[in-house]
């Protein structure tokens, strides 16, 4: 019926670069002259103390932060418009649509005929194949975030921006969803904003720490091994400890 709901985006996923990003909030620069580069086809995690401007930076990349300035491009100077999918901490499911309706929302908004078979296949892949006609209110928080992941995958964009997508979930659900997301997002250029060092080390090929005021992004850490990594791996645990120390320093510097 359907070959693959998401043709390999690997070859086509571009790098993402931000230059001279600047955001002034309440007269104080949150960041100014900030540079960021995301390697193509990899998951990059962005950590940092609360309020440092991680989400604002992500929103700048998504074209949602009207107050921020900066040049966002695909490494070759082209714009990212139409190549970005966005996933937030809230599932942002529309309560009046069933799960399939929520997943095909993008098609409907673009005035295209909704590709329901593909939406149903994606929902089945995130483990909700038997709940297609349910309304979001009937689901648990973890299930709702699975639907949000299916909706993000349905967009089939080479760049995916995720703002603490698992932040509101309990530990077990988070663990399951992280593995699922890492599998499904492989090959895309992903920015994952998170406050959880373990999540960053499990999922990301490179880990960035954003700190200071105005904030800067420190040089990337590139943990060894393929993702998703085992949270019991001594290297991951050691990395987590080091990241915690760095984040603690970052917060006291802010």
């Amino acid at each position: 019926m359907y070959d693959s709901p998401y043709p390999a985006a690997g070859g086509s996923a571009p790098p993402v670069a931000v230059e001279a990003a600047r955001l002034v909030y309440d007269g104080l620069p949150l960041f100014d002259g900030l540079q960021l580069e995301l390697p193509p086809g990899e998951i990059t995690a962005l950590l940092g103390p609360s309020g440092v401007g991680k989400s604002s930076l992500l929103r700048l990349l998504a074209g949602l932060e009207a107050a921020a300035e900066g040049r966002v491009h695909d490494g070759a100077g082209g714009p990212l418009t139409g190549r970005v999918a966005y996933m937030a901490q809230q599932d942002l499911l529309l309560p009046w649509l069933d799960l399939v309706g929520n997943v095909v929302l993008g098609d409907r908004l673009r005035g295209r005929r909704p590709d329901r078979p593909r939406a149903e296949a994606l929902l089945a892949e995130v483990g909700l194949g038997d709940r297609l006609r349910d309304r979001p209110a009937a689901l648990s928080g973890g299930m709702r975030q699975r639907v949000a992941l299916a909706r993000t995958l349905f967009e089939n964009r080479p760049v995916v921006l995720m703002d603490e997508p698992f932040g509101a979930l309990d530990a077990i659900t988070r663990h399951e969803l992280q593995a699922l997301a890492a599998e499904k997002l492989a090959g895309r250029t992903v920015l994952l904003v998170t406050h959880d060092p373990l999540e960053a080390l499990r999922l990301a090929q490179s880990v960035l720490v954003m700190a200071g005021r105005p904030a800067q992004v420190e040089p990337p850490i590139r943990p060894a091994g393929p993702v998703p990594r085992d949270p019991g791996d001594p290297l991951v645990l050691q990395g987590q400890a080091e990241l915690l120390v760095r984040l603690g320093r970052a917060r006291s510097a802010a």
Partner: peptide
């Protein structure tokens, strides 16, 4: 949040 999502999906004002 819904408006942000709709914007990244490329919806027109009317849609």
């Amino acid at each position: 949040g819904w408006l942000d999502l709709a914007q990244t999906m490329g919806g027109s004002r009317l849609s």
